[in-house]
Simulated scan of single mutants.
Amino acid sequence: MDKIKQAIAYMQENKIEEAAALFTEVIEENPEDPVGYINFGNLLFHMNDFTRAQRFYERAMELDKHAATAYYGLGNLYYEQSLYPKALENFQKAIELGLEEPDVYFLLGMTFQHQEQYKLSLPYLLRATELDPDNQDSLFQYGLALAQSDHLKDAEKIFHKVLSLETNHSDANYNLGVVALFEDRLEQALTYFNEALRIQPEHILAANGKEKTEALLNES
Rank of each mutant, 00 (worst) to 15 (best):
L190H: 07
L144K: 13
I204C: 01
A147D: 11
K153A: 12
P201Q: 08
S170E: 15
H203V: 02
I199T: 10
L186T: 02
Y174T: 08
H151S: 03
K153H: 04
D171C: 02
D171W: 11
L144T: 13
K210M: 11
L181V: 03
R198K: 14
L152D: 11
L146R: 09
L205F: 04
N208Q: 13
A206Q: 04
K161Q: 15
L152V: 00
T213V: 11
T167N: 12
V162E: 05
I204V: 14
L176K: 09
A172F: 10
A147N: 10
I204F: 07
V179I: 15
L205E: 10
D184R: 06
T167W: 09
T213R: 05
N194I: 00
G143N: 13
L146Y: 07
H151N: 08
Y174W: 11
L144Q: 12
Q188N: 02
D154W: 00
Q200P: 00
Q148G: 01
S164H: 05
A207G: 04
Y192I: 00
R198N: 12
E187G: 01
E202T: 14
R185M: 08
L186D: 05
A172L: 09
H169P: 05
Y174A: 08
Y142H: 15
A155V: 01
N173A: 10
D184H: 11
I204T: 13
A180D: 14
